[in-house]
Design a binder for these strands. Structure first.
Lengths: 217, 217
DNA sequence: ACAAATATTTAGCCAAAGCTAAAGAATTAA
DNA sequence: TTAATTCTTTAGCTTTGGCTAAATATTTGT
């Protein structure tokens, strides 16, 4: 598996988790920041390798092999994130990009030894679960802040890790995993949400609310 | 710089250190396990990028930029080797191949944080010096066992790290960095060397002797 | 049911890295 | 000083991954 193939596989994996349908050529191209024609080419390659199955206009689905492979890449990504944060003192918003490179290192031994070195962490710095060496992991039950109910108290269990700016924003406002958040008011006009945490009140935009994941206490 | 370019640069760096002349197209091709025509192509690319200068039939020489770049890659390689050995308990012979991959990760911050995490090691597990973040390092004074004098005692300060079989051989015979070795007899017939260390005597072949580096005590 | 909108694929390019086979240069040896 | 040998480059082809523009296929809305 080449670097590009691994990245496509990971993209398909993430998109599959976000909706119940197959992943369309267009959606895949957009996720990969490339053109639909390029996605078509890669879909052929991955289908030839039995990593995915594909029905035109119905989208791509990971095969068992494909999913297992994608999970391995995700496992590596998240382990490296933990390493960067805990051992090398990277900040929350810095880990993602470097982990994007490290996740492609091919050495099962390295991955497993790293896992052991980090004491078999269950989640990464963004709250996402880390698969074990057999690919098993527990799904974290979470809702986005936009889905939360007014007047209810939640705990922050996850964030979308793709934007460093977003993570810096959270950092600047002292929101992190484990922060207890009460929803004071949901503004229907612009879908902003007024929250309280650490005895502070803050109004966050819909954009922020969508990328902040909570679980009930 | 692409992966292939980095690997060529590193190869040139290593070959430059082994002889005083420029590195020939053929020598470079051999080191890279590829064909001379491919080396020619890459030489053009690297020369275009001002990483090397090249005079046909006189060989390639690293430019200042090129050398600095090569040293950075070497620094990363050796730091990762230390990490794998010390933190993840890889064995001597296993570190090289994984470090070959890790050395291409592009993040100055990662490299420097790793250096700090490892406590600024001066040499890697094979005795080779690790450049600091400015590219500075001290050259280790060493001779190969074939160059040693009969009746003299030395200390093992380095090994050629390229063959895992060689390192396994040393491991199996309990030779490691820091081992004190006395040369009992040099056999002119086959250039084998009889040595004594840890109160044991052992005859090593010329091949082994060439790849074992010593310094005077 | 059929046109419009949307989704997908094809065809033909490009660049990076590699290869083989053949040609061209320089060095060395007789 | 030629001729042989060795070194190096060129020409042309391959694969991977990406691109644009154009063609084709499917869905959807009326």
């Amino acid at each position: 598996m080449t670097l590009a193939e691994e990245n496509y596989l990971k993209a398909i994996y993430h998109l599959e988790n976000q909706s119940t349908n197959g992943v369309s050529t267009n959606a895949l191209a957009e996720e990969m920041q490339t053109k639909a024609s390029s996605a078509t080419d890669m879909i052929k390659k991955l289908a030839d390798k039995n990593m995915i199955s594909y029905i035109p206009y119905q989208g791509v689905t990971l095969s068992k092999t494909g999913r297992a492979y994608a999970v391995k890449v995700v496992r590596k990504h998240r382990l490296w994130e933990v390493f960067l944060l805990e051992k090398l003192n990277f900040s929350w918003d810095e880990v993602h990009d470097v982990a994007e490179q490290l996740e492609h290192i091919k050495s099962e031994k390295l991955t497993d030894k790293l896992d052991e070195f980090l004491n078999f962490p269950k989640t990464d710095p963004h709250g996402d679960p880390i698969p074990d060496k057999h690919g098993h992991f527990e799904k974290v039950e979470k809702i986005s802040l936009t889905e939360g109910l007014q007047g209810t108290t939640y705990v922050c269990v996850g964030v979308d890790d793709s934007s460093s700016d977003f993570l810096k924003y959270l950092d600047g406002n002292n929101i992190s995993l484990g922060t207890t958040i009460e929803i004071i008011h949901k503004e229907p006009f612009d879908n902003s949400v007024k929250i309280r945490f650490n005895d502070l009140e803050l109004v966050v935009s819909e954009n922020v609310a969508k990328n902040l994941f909570l679980s009930e206490v």
